[in-house]
Structures are given as structure tokens and as C-alpha cells.
């Protein structure tokens, strides 16, 4: 169950933290295993912060710091949008805005065997999942979920992709749905795929809808939920 390791920690969850802040003191906690996500590191008995952002906690024992940047630090389990750069014998080289290029094994598709290796040309957009992301190694991707089903992963056809920051992508993937997408969805019909690495793909029947959705998402970077709703309403009114 959720335990309160130390007074300082419970007050820091969902708070802004800065590099150097000590968020956990292991000596004060009983025998517990804690999972450290991105932005935290262990220095002897103290867990300190590496990146400026918000400290988050998920049951049962995972802590991480959430921040928004233009480059992506790969984390296992994330869904990302990658661009195929090259294909080798065993892997596709896929660019996911991480420090090193990611590998996508040619067999990592549903029902993938040596006989039906997919052919991706350079520049294909893929929706994939990060399987392994250890420091110093190239991250590994897969186009199927943990149980081996295809589940929407794979190449994305048509549409338009643009880049955003990682924070914006996370906001778009919020549940409940962020007000921006909700308001847009009420009036327009479109398809959207969001990668946690700061890439967003939009598809709709007419180019004007795509351009409208793309530009409104790009503009909502620094707006609060209420402001987003207002901006979208204005845009839609102007168009219709």
C-alpha cells in the first residue's frame, strides 16, 4: 500500500522539483523496493532529482519526474512515432528523437517470420512501442503490444505528421481527454496518433481539417485548458 516514506516526499509529489533536490531518504524507509523512473537518481541513501519538472508517483512504488523537452529520452513501455532511416539485415533503423537511433527487429511484427519481412522505404512513419531502453544501448522497438498482437502498431499511411514537445504529447494523451481534442472532436472528424517522443500524426478526409487540427495543437503549447477551449472555439467559428 502507499506508505509515507518521509514527510518531505509526500509534500513533494505533484510539486515542482529542481535538479539537486532530495526527494527520498532511503535510510528513513523500511525495506522497500522503489522503481525510479526518468529524472531521478540514487546517491547513496538519498534519491535526488536530475531534471526540473513535476515529481509523480504511481502505485505501487514508481517515482519519476515529468518535464517537457524537445528531445526524447526513451523509456521502456512508451508508445512512439518513428521514422525509418535505413534497413539492415536484422533491424530497421528508426529515428525517434532519442540520443541514439533505435532498432526495430524485422521480426517484431504480429506473425512475423523470416518469410514475410515487411518492406519499409526510407521515410515511412511507424507507430511503435519501446521495448528496451537502457542507457548506452540503442533503444529497441516493437510493432506489437506485450502479448504479441498488432493492436494499431505499424506504418501510418497518409495524413500529416508534425513535431511537438514531450509535455504537449503527454497532455494530448491525458485521460480524461484534454479539452482541446474534445472541442475539436465535437465539430470535426479526424484521426490522431500521438507519440510520447514529441510527434503527432493527424489524418482527415480534407486537407483543411488536417491543417486546422495541426495548427491548433501547435498553438496550444502554452495555454491553459480554458484558454485552449476558447482558442479552438474561435478557430472553428472562423472556419465555419
Amino acid at each position: 500500500m502507499e506508505s509515507k516514506p518521509s514527510n518531505s516526499l509526500s509534500s513533494l509529489i505533484d510539486q515542482q522539483v529542481f535538479p539537486g533536490d532530495v526527494v527520498l531518504d532511503l535510510s528513513k524507509m523500511a525495506n522497500q523496493t522503489i522503481k525510479l523512473g526518468s529524472g531521478l537518481r540514487q546517491e547513496g541513501d538519498a534519491i535526488s532529482v536530475m531534471k526540473a519538472g513535476k515529481l509523480r508517483f504511481a502505485k505501487p512504488n514508481k517515482y519519476w519526474v515529468e518535464s517537457s523537452h524537445k528531445r526524447y529520452v526513451p523509456c521502456a513501455g512508451d508508445t512512439v512515432l518513428g521514422i525509418v532511416v535505413d534497413s539492415k539485415a536484422d533491424n530497421f533503423l528508426v529515428d525517434i528523437k532519442s540520443p541514439t537511433i533505435a532498432f526495430l527487429p524485422v521480426l517484431a511484427f504480429e506473425g512475423g517470420t523470416r518469410r514475410n519481412i515487411p518492406k519499409f522505404e526510407v521515410g515511412t512513419l511507424l507507430y511503435a512501442r519501446v521495448v528496451k531502453a537502457n542507457t548506452g544501448m540503442n533503444p529497441e522497438l516493437a510493432c506489437m503490444d506485450a502479448s504479441g498482437k498488432a493492436a494499431e502498431f505499424g506504418p501510418l499511411k497518409d495524413g500529416y505528421m508534425f513535431e511537438s514537445s514531450t509535455g504537449l504529447s503527454r497532455m494530448l494523451l491525458n485521460s480524461p481527454t484534454c479539452p482541446l481534442l474534445e472541442t475539436l472532436g465535437k465539430k470535426l472528424a479526424f484521426e490522431i496518433a500521438v507519440g510520447l517522443n514529441g510527434r503527432v500524426w493527424v489524418n482527415a478526409t480534407s486537407p483543411s481539417i488536417i491543417i486546422l487540427v495541426a495548427n491548433s495543437i501547435m498553438k496550444s503549447e502554452s495555454l491553459s485548458p480554458v484558454q485552449q477551449k476558447i482558442m479552438v472555439d474561435n478557430l472553428l467559428q472562423r472556419v465555419q
Binding site: I83, V85, D86, L93, D95, S98, P99, T100, I101, E121, G123, T124, L125, L156, K157, D158, G159, Y160, M161, W201, S206, P207, S208, I210, I211
Partner: peptide
């Protein structure tokens, strides 16, 4: 390879399609 900025096939096609309707 990791450093260069790339364009996807989708973007290229989309820019051309959108231009057909003057967008």
C-alpha cells in the same frame, strides 16, 4: 543518421495534396 532532420513520406505527399486545394 540520428542527427539529421527527416521528412516522412506522408508529409511530402500531404504538402503536395494540400497545395492542390491552395492550402
Amino acid at each position: 543518421l540520428a542527427n539529421a532532420w527527416r521528412m516522412t513520406v506522408n508529409e511530402k505527399k500531404f504538402i503536395e495534396t494540400a497545395l492542390l486545394s491552395d492550402l
